[in-house]
Simulated scan of single mutants.
Amino acid sequence: MLNINKTSNNPYLLLTPGPLTTTDSVKQAMLKDWCTWDDEYNELVNSIRHRLVRLAAPQCPEKYTAVLMQGSGSFSVEAVLGTVIPKHGGKLAVAVNGAYGERMVAMAEVLGIPVTAVRFDEREAINPDVFEEALKNDPSITHAAIVHCETTTGVLNPLSELADVVSSQGKILIVDAMSSFGGVPLDMEQLQIDYLISSSNKCIQGVPGFGFVLARISSLETCKGNARSLSLDLYDQWDVMERMNGKWRYTSPTHVVRAFDQALHELEVEGGINARYLRYHQNQQLLVTGMKEAGFSTLLPEEWHSPIITSFRYPDENFSFSDFYTRLKKEGFVLYPGKLTSVPTFRIGTIGDVHTSDVLELIRIVKQISAN
């Protein structure tokens, strides 16, 4: 099992939901230059696409395809929304319980897509029954979107139940699995997901630079001419990659792609998504136990926790996150501030090249700081 912790190339661990701490071997993969027209590079791109599909739909990979898109994960989310929803007669419903659901609503509004936001408290998981009622009450809705792991708080929304609701209502399902894909097991065919979106710098443990969309081919084939953007035309990007053996329409992040290929290899060596989920889950469980011993409580009840990132409440009104952050960074750990306005919190991620020894060391230092 890979266990490459802090080195001279990693002065601190990023305990964040991505970008995250990568292995030295992933970094080293970026030391070679690649030409975007070269057959060897394009074959590498196609290899990545095929391996992603096998991870997402292992039982029937022939029904799905992978499209790589330049930019951060949000670029890929916008590419999906702007391409797969028809210019006429389409309407989107978004289940919102955090900043990334809200971002999809904002994207739809900017793109001129009719959208309904079905909002829930940020401190709760999405309620499938409530979302189902919203879909039933508006037959004009054609597409439904949810965030699997909403890193605003770290809540893991009930994907299986929500997918059943969307399927029963006959809607196209779009899943933002940005922070979960590669770290939480799922099967697109079993869940009847039409579009799943993630990015290079999350649970696959690559570096930032591109996102990717896993799509049901029969659904994507109907999307020609829908796009509201030239650069973010998901259909055209897919069409070119299919016809030109992995070629991107515009300049691709070649070094990032090479690093991602190495990261995929390391996922395979670790034992695949199930093994990585187990490591992340163990990290998160150990973290919560240790933080509680140090006097911190979690924002969410345990049944809503994800293995990705966890929100902790401030222990008292005198707590200074800025001081806490600075002291931990000096010891080699970087955290995330909270994203809620209603409750003072901070967040600690447990994904990336992070292992139980790292979490134990973090807890030791946190206890030391809390005792002073």
Rank of each mutant, 00 (worst) to 15 (best):
H88Y: 15
L92W: 02
S76I: 07
K91M: 15
V94S: 03
F75M: 08
M104I: 13
V105A: 10
V110H: 12
V94E: 03
S74F: 15
G112A: 03
V77I: 14
M104Q: 14
A93L: 12
Y100E: 14
A106Y: 13
V77F: 03
K87P: 13
E78D: 11
G112F: 02
G89D: 09
E78K: 12
S72I: 11
I113S: 06
G98E: 07
M107E: 09
A93G: 07
G112Y: 06
L81Q: 01
A95Q: 06
G82M: 08
G73Y: 06
A79N: 01
F75P: 01
T83E: 00
M107R: 08
G98K: 02
K87N: 15
S72C: 12
G101K: 03
K91S: 14
V94F: 02
L81F: 01
V84G: 03
A106R: 15
V110L: 10
P86M: 05
S76G: 10
I85A: 00
Y100H: 15
A108Q: 07
G112Q: 06
G101I: 09
V84S: 00
S76L: 05
V80H: 01
G98W: 04
E78C: 08
A108F: 10
V84F: 01
A108N: 10
N97P: 05
E78W: 04
A93M: 11
V110P: 01
A93E: 04
T83D: 03
A108G: 10
G89V: 07
G112L: 05
G89I: 07
A106N: 15
M107H: 12
M104Y: 08
A93Y: 02
K87M: 13
A79P: 01
M107D: 10
H88L: 14
N97E: 10
N97I: 11
T83L: 05
S76Q: 04
G82S: 13
L92S: 04
V77D: 03
A99C: 06
G98R: 01
E102H: 12
E102Q: 14
E109A: 09
G98P: 03
V94Y: 01
V96R: 00
E102W: 12
F75N: 08
G90V: 10
L92H: 03
A79M: 02
P86T: 05
G112I: 07
S74R: 14
L81H: 00
R103D: 14
A93F: 05
Y100T: 13
A79E: 00
I85E: 02
V105N: 04
G101W: 09
S72H: 11
V80S: 01
L111F: 09
P86K: 02
A79V: 05
M104S: 09
R103Q: 15
P86D: 05
M107K: 12
A95G: 13
S74L: 13
S76N: 04
H88F: 15
K91N: 14
K87R: 15
